[in-house]
Design a protein around this nucleic acid. Sequence first.
DNA 1: GATGCCAACTTTTTT
DNA 2: AGTTGGCATC
Length: 773
Amino acid sequence: MNTYLNTLNEAQKQAVIQKDGPMIIIAGAGSGKTRVLTYRIAHLMQQGVDSFNILSLTFTNKAAKEMKARIAGVVGASEAKNLWMGTFHSVFARILRSEADKLGFPSNFTIYDTQDSVRLITAIIKEMNLDKERYKAKQILGRISSFKNSLITVRAYFNNSDLQEADLHASRPKVGDIYKEYVDRCFKSGAMDFDDLLLRTNELLARFPEVLAKYQSRFKYIMVDEYQDTNHSQYIIVRSLADKFENICVVGDDSQSIYSFRGANIQNILNFQKDYPDVKTFKLEQNYRSTKNIVNAANSVIARNKTKLDKEVWTSNDDGDAINVMRTISDGEEGRFVAQSIWENQINHQLTSDSFCILYRTNSQSRAIEDALRKKGIDYKIYGGISFYQRKEIKDILSYLRILINPNDEEAFKRIINYPARGIGATTIDKLTIAANHYKKSIFEIVRYIDKIDISINSGTKNKLQNFMNMMLRLQIESQTKNAFEIAEIVVKQAQLIKDLEKEGTPESVSKVENVQELLNGIKDFITDKIEQGEEASLTTFLEDVALATDFDANKDDDKPSVSLMTIHQSKGLEYMYVYIVGLEENLFPSAMSMNTRSELEEERRLFYVALTRAEKVAYLTYAQTRYRWGKLVDAEPSRFLEEIDDQYLQYLTPKAINPIINNFVDKSIFDDAPKGIRFQKPIQRKKMDRDLVKKKEIVIPKNMKKVSQTSAKTNLFDENVVVGNIVEHNRFGTGEVLSLEGSGPNKKAEIKFGTVGKKKLLLQFAKLRVIG
DNA sequence: GATGCCAACTTTTTT
DNA sequence: AGTTGGCATC
C-alpha cells in the first residue's frame, strides 16, 4: 500500500499527501504535475474519500480520460468510475442537463458551437437592419463572449454606463440590443453556447441556494488543473462550489498562461494566495522532461516577463544538444528543411515518427510543412484546423439529429430546411423567421402549423414545407425507439443525403460521401464504446460529445506512428523528443496582433516558453526570410524571441546552399575575372539582427550537424538517380540490388532484389531509396 | 428560387 | 491561395 508515494520526489509527495484545506501547486513545465494530480486523487480515495465526492476539472477531455485510466490503475476501475472528471464545459453541461428545468431550458438543450453563434448573430444583425460592416458578427460575438465570461449579463450590461459608453464610442450603440436578442433567441431555441455553459452554471448556483448547497456538499474535494487559464466565470464557479469545505486544490503554472484571448485571467492564479489566506503552497520545480540546455534556454526567455510567481525550474538531466536555429529563404524551404531534418534524425537515431512534433503559431502555417512531409513520404497527423465535425456535410447531418432531439434548435433548422435543395429559398425562410419572432414560437412550430396561421406564402411552397415537416415528424417518431446509429442511418437514407452528394459526381462530393460514411462509423463506435462502459448511449450524449470534443479526442491513437503537427496552444501538456518550432518571425510569432501592450507581448513570450518546454531532447527553431501570406510573398524579420534566448544555449545552422539568395539566379563563374574582394551579398541590409546572429556564430560548428551536413552534401543519396547495380536501402524493405530500370520521369521504376522480401518493382519518386554502394 | 461567377476576405490562438 | 458570400442571370 502507498507504494506509489515512493516514486515521488519530496515536493511532489508533500503535495499528494496534503489532504484538507486550500492549496496551490505551482508546477513548472515538465515537473510531473499530472502524476501529482493523479496520485493525489488516488491517495484521497485510499484515505477513504468517496470517489463520488471528488470533482476534478481538467483542460481537455483527453487529459481527463487519461487521468481516469491512471487512477483506475491504482484504485481499481470500478472505484475510479464515479469520479467527476472532465473539462469545465463538459462537467457543467452534465449538471446543467439535470437542472435545466430550473432555468427554463429543456434537459436536452442544444450546445451551439462558434459557427452556430456567428450565424445567429449575422441573422440578428440583418434582421435589425444594421450595417454589417460596422457590426461584424465575429467581433460582436467576441464582445458578447467576453461579457459572459466576466459574468456581465444583458441586465448588467444595461446597468453599466461605462460599457455602453465604450460601445457608443466605438460607433456601435446597438451592441446591447444585439446581445439581448442573441440571448433571447438562444433561450427560445433551447440552446446554450460555450460561454453559457459556464454563465448558466453560475446563474444556477446563484439563483438556487438549494442547488448550490447540493453540489457544495457533493464536491467535498475539488481540483482544478491549468488554473492559470481559468476565466472569471470559471473562477466564480470554483469559488462557490468550494465555499463550504474549502478543500480546493489548484494546479498551474503562471508561466504557461496562454489563453487570455478567451478570457483567461492570470490574476486568478496570482491572487489565489490572497483569496485563501491559510493556503498551503507547493512548488514543483524539478523538471524531468528536458535537457539542461532546453530548461535553461526556456528560463532565460521567460525571465524577461515581469508578472510572474517566484519559482525556479531546474533539471538534473544531461546538458543535451544546443538548440538549433535555422534560417531559410522561404516558408517552402523551411518546410523542406524540417522534413529533411526529421528524415535524417529518424535514420541516424533509429526513431519512429511519433518522436517528432512540429509547432507553429497559426494553423495556416501547416500547409507548407505538410507539402514537404508528403513529398518526403513522412507520415504526419495534423491537429486542429477545421475539425471533422465542422465540415458542411457533417454539420448538415448533425443538424438533422439535433432537430430530432430539440425541434426548437433554430440554427440547425435553418441549415436543413433547404438541404438537400427542396425549393425553399431565402425569402420563405425570412418570412418564417418574422412569423416565428411575431408569434414567439420556433420556426419549427411555425412550419408545423403553417396552415393555422396567417402568412403570405404561396401554396406550392407551403406544400413543400409540409412535405418536409412530415418527413421530420416521421423521423422523430422513429427516433424514439432507435439508438443513435440507427437514427443517423435512417436520416441519411430518408433525407437522401448521400444520394444528393452522389448526384454531383465531383471529386469533392466523393470525399464528402466518405466523410458521411465515417460519421456513421463514428456514431457506431461511440455507441459500442458507451454500452461497453455501461454508460448512456443516447443521441443527446453523442451530440454533446461532438460539440465539446476537441481535435485530440476525435483522433484515434491506433494509427501508425506519425509526426504531430499542431499550434502551440494545442501542444500544452504534451511532450516530444524532437520539437520543431517554425515561423519564428516578427509579426508572426510574436503575432502582429499581440504586440501592442506589454501584457500581450508577455503572453506571446509565455507561448514561446510553452513551445520550447515541450521538447525532451532536441529543439529546432526555424524562420524564413520570405513567406507567403494572403497569397503574397512578404519579407520577414527574425523573431525577437531568438534574440532573447541566452546565446550559450544556441547553435546556428546556416547551410550554404540556402544562404545567399543571389546565387540562385546568377552563375558566379561569369564573374571569375572580376577583381578580388567583390561581395555577392544583398546591398540592402534590412535584417540587422539576422546579420549579427550570423556574424557571431557562423564559425561555430554545430555539435550534431556532422551527420546532417554529410548527408545534405550528397543530395543525390535520396533522389532518383540510381543505376543498375547500385546497392540501395529502402525504409521498410532494407537493402537490395537494383536489377533493372524502366520508364522515365515520374514513372521511372526500378526492379530491386531485396534480401528480406525478394524482388520488388518500385516507383522511384515514392521509394525514397538511399544509394549505399 | 437556383445557378454561376466575381469580389472580398482571410490568418492568432479554442472550449 | 483558397474560401465564402453577394449579385446578376436564367
